[in-house]
């Protein structure tokens, strides 16, 4: 990776730390093992669009409304990360990735380190053509939260926790956590 991209990855991690959001860096070969150590309870997801990995078999990707309500964890792809904010971009898809990322207690977005951009305007620059082609996306930053009940509470209508997995290039060696 370029030096700039290395900086983006480092700053993304720092932004997530400031939000108190966990992030784990993993090489593709260790992905399934890493994931297994993070998930909690019933886990659902959608197929992942990365060449180097795919969802482990024990993740249910045939999601129905009933399973959506029962699951505690979900694993879905993120198309971008934003270093300045610790945000991930979750695209809306016909297999329900957006919905699946929302109803659970723990959401695990999976992101390629190459897809971490520096700034909000970089991210919006990527989103422009996608939205003009009819797409929809969520820029998600940390868990669902509210302060409407007199104090900050996580998990208002969406996940209480977010744990980001960043796929590093196998040749970079990766660094866990």
């Amino acid at each position: 990776m370029s030096i700039n991209q290395d900086n983006n990855v480092t700053d993304f991690q720092q932004s997530l730390a400031a939000l108190d959001v966990d992030v784990t860096y993993t090489a593709p070969a260790a992905f399934a093992e890493t994931l297994a150590s993070i998930v909690q309870g019933e886990t659902i997801g959608v197929p992942l669009p990365f060449d180097s990995i795919s969802q482990p078999e024990w993740i249910d990707t045939e999601v129905t409304p009933a399973k959506l309500n029962a699951a505690q964890t979900s694993v879905t792809p993120a198309s971008l990360g934003i270093a300045d904010y610790g945000s991930v971009v979750l695209d809306s898809t016909t297999d329900g990735a957006e919905q699946i990322s929302l109803f659970v207690d723990l959401h695990i977005p999976v992101l390629s380190a190459e897809d971490i951009v520096r700034s909000m305007s970089d991210a919006v620059g990527h989103l422009g053509p996608k939205l003009r082609a009819g797409g929809s996306s969520i820029i998600a930053t940390g868990p669902s939260a509210t302060a409407d009940m007199g104090a900050l509470v996580k998990g208002a209508h969406g996940p209480k926790d977010v744990h980001v997995i960043v796929l590093t290039d196998e040749t970079d060696g990766g660094n866990n956590e």
């Binding site: 297999d95 009819g134 797409g135």
Partner: peptide, 16 residues
């Protein structure tokens, strides 16, 4: 700095 969700929806959306 940013709220949890910035939804950018192009309705009618394709999701189920």
């Amino acid at each position: 700095d940013i709220t949890s969700y910035i939804s950018l929806l192009t309705p009618p959306v394709d999701s189920p």
